[in-house]
Design a binder for these strands. Structure first.
Lengths: 199, 199
DNA sequence: GTCTATAACCGGATAGAC
DNA sequence: GTCTATCCGGTTATAGAC
């Protein structure tokens, strides 16, 4: 049984790489078969459909991300530290599961239309609530600036962080930890030099 | 002649809406025909192919954005004001041409593969250079914090701004000018309340 | 568990009548 | 300038042999 599961996992992993590189819709079952060393028809012995493969990849990814977020929030009481932990957790997720993350980023519209992922919007709303609660707590306790709009801040943070998966590559100029800290620094203190703008 | 051009422009505008809403690859020529009130075959009297339509939409959009950026940079000498003008110009572009902008955001991979858009990467590199030059000037003149990495700052800014086109809708809770100013405030000063973190 | 062969469908694009 | 009719290629998925 372990052997079969391994084979399944191998096929799924190489399929995820293809989905990430070319987009889900543009990846054919023939290509998935080629990458796994079998013919497309044989895929249907392991999976019921191409969309079922996509669903399995994305579900596992979301489950993992949810777990990381829960640890991040539970590990701190200060909202600023919680927010920083959420940012770090996001970058670590994107480092550890780049293929699934890229699928999630690039093909959200496709995923929403997959029958088995009809609860996707609900899951994503849960992530959003986690971030916004932390931001709101920061404002309420005076750690964050009072003028901030939590929803808008969340959206800018989210959209700044996740596309990193498209340009970050392991072993290149930046390590993911460095990028995470630069992101934290930028969003915590802003661009402007204090003396020049806060007079 | 004017009549023909109008008809062309109408078809192109409704096609752009479809491309933006469903994605370019998922939009069929039959749907484009339906939206224009003609059959798919008749489209080929006005355009040589579906990709030719896409190319025309995107080229016009990029030309307009380039012009806005040039005005933004030329109108100021202080790097902080130049950066703010670039941010405002981006949001105004996204407000005035939401369909083309969304295509550009969502279907970049598709666009890169369109033969007629083989210079796309080069054009985009020009945009990037404009932003990075301004950020570097801000650091050099001491207006921006010295620790900043211009390339990274550019990427976070770019990725925070453009996805706005996906959730912003005219006449809703926020006007685009408000969103632009909130973006400027967030990236200029950061999240942290000064007293709490700068001690 | 994989292969062969093929069904059933849908996409972009074309030719020629009107 | 639009319609009718159709071609051709590529897609997912299935049936049954091995």
């Amino acid at each position: 049984m372990g052997k079969d599961d391994d084979r399944r996992a191998e096929i799924l992993a190489s399929a995820a790489d293809l989905f990430a590189a070319k987009g889900v819709a543009s990846t054919t079952v023939r290509e998935i078969g080629d990458a796994a060393g079998i013919l497309s028809g044989s895929l249907y012995h392991h999976f019921t459909s191409k969309d079922a493969m996509v669903e399995e990849i994305v579900r596992e990814y979301l489950r993992d991300l949810r777990a990381r977020y829960e640890v991040a929030v539970a590990s701190h009481s200060d909202p600023l530290e919680q927010l920083r932990a959420l940012i770090r957790a996001s970058f670590e997720s994107l480092r550890d599961q780049p293929a699934a993350c890229e699928i999630y980023q690039n093909d959200y519209r496709y995923l929403r239309a997959v029958p088995g992922l009809s609860d996707l919007d609900k899951i994503v709303a849960g992530f959003q609530a986690t971030w916004i609660d932390v931001i709101q707590a920061g404002i309420d306790t005076g750690v964050f600036r009072a003028e901030l709009d939590p929803t808008i801040v969340y959206r800018f943070l989210r959209d700044a962080i996740w596309p990193t998966v498209r340009w970050y590559r392991t072993g290149r100029k930046y390590r993911i930890d460095d990028i995470a800290e630069k992101c934290i620094g930028l969003f915590t203190y802003g661009i402007a030099a204090p003396a020049a703008t806060r007079a």
